[in-house]
């Protein structure tokens, strides 16, 4: 459905952030994109959704195909209409709008306006807590509620592909679990394809059908979650486990510092 082939992204004409990034998201699946800070995960999502321009970024090489059509030269509003919706990192709700107005803003590109009312109720079924707060100013919601609103806003656009940038950011573990369950439900019930960027590798690998690991602007490893979970490097650097599967103790780290095998 979505394919990136050898994509290169440069910021401000000089900073090379993506260096030949390739990845594929098949229809109806949940694909996870993991990697440490600064690896280029958010840049990858922005390259797809057309949000690089306001940050002075540019796709300089390679191509991004969505349903067989090149989209990397189109602007954001066209890409949203095409069916790709990015839930940005850090929630980014419209603070001075109330919950319902935020959802209406999410439905901006819809052409079937008469269904919007019904879809708002649909979002409230996923997130009953938002229903109680429908008239409240979004800026005063809790972090978890704001993340729910951000995802609900994406649902309002009825996208074919939803890209979530670190939905677990700054949330309590229980809430994170709840949000991930809902992501899974959206994938199953709405048939929405999902591209998930996460720091929380364990949770992401639990829900994903396929996962990519990114470092330094390119993919270094990819595979089924089960395969990745048993990879020694992934266990060490993303799951914090040692060879036998027990939690690591600081003594081992001091004793022998493992190198990332894929870097050499």
């Amino acid at each position: 459905m979505l394919a990136l082939n050898n994509v290169e992204v440069i910021y401000n004409d000089v900073i090379l952030v993506l260096k030949g990034m390739s990845l594929e998201v098949p229809q109806g699946k949940i694909v996870a994109l993991l990697g440490s800070n600064g690896a280029g995960k958010s840049t990858t999502l922005k390259a797809v959704s057309g949000l690089l321009k306001p940050e002075d970024g540019e796709v300089t090489d390679g191509e991004i195909l969505f349903e067989g059509e090149k989209i990397h030269e189109q602007d954001a509003s066209h890409i949203v209409r095409r069916g790709i919706f990015q839930v940005m990192e850090g929630r980014r709700v419209f603070e001075h709008l109330d919950v319902e107005q935020n959802l209406i803003a999410g439905s901006y590109t819809r052409t079937d306006r008469q269904n919007v009312r019904g879809d708002i109720e649909g979002v409230f079924e996923y997130f009953p807590r938002l229903k109680e707060r429908r008239r409240q100013t979004a800026g005063y919601l809790s972090g978890g509620e704001q993340q729910m609103l951000a995802i609900g806003r994406a649902l309002m656009a009825k996208p074919k592909l939803m890209m979530l940038d670190e939905p677990s950011l700054g949330l309590a573990p229980l809430l994170v679990q709840e949000i991930f369950n809902i992501i899974k439900r959206i994938n199953e019930e709405e048939g929405t394809t999902i591209l998930l960027v996460e720091q929380n590798a364990r949770l992401a690998l639990d829900v994903a059908d396929y996962a990519y690991i990114m470092e330094n602007g390119r993919i270094v490893l990819d595979g089924e979650p089960e395969t990745l979970k048993s990879n020694a490097d992934v266990r060490e650097f993303y799951l914090g486990l040692n060879e036998v599967g027990a939690r690591k103790s600081y003594r081992d780290v001091k004793h022998y510092k493992r190198r990332k095998r894929w870097l050499s």
Binding site: P54, A76, V80, M88, F94, E95, H96, Q101
Partner: peptide
């Protein structure tokens, strides 16, 4: 109003 609040987020709504 959404644009006034957060331009980039508004862009991401299309």
């Amino acid at each position: 109003r959404a644009t006034a609040d957060d331009q980039q987020a508004a862009l991401s709504m299309g």
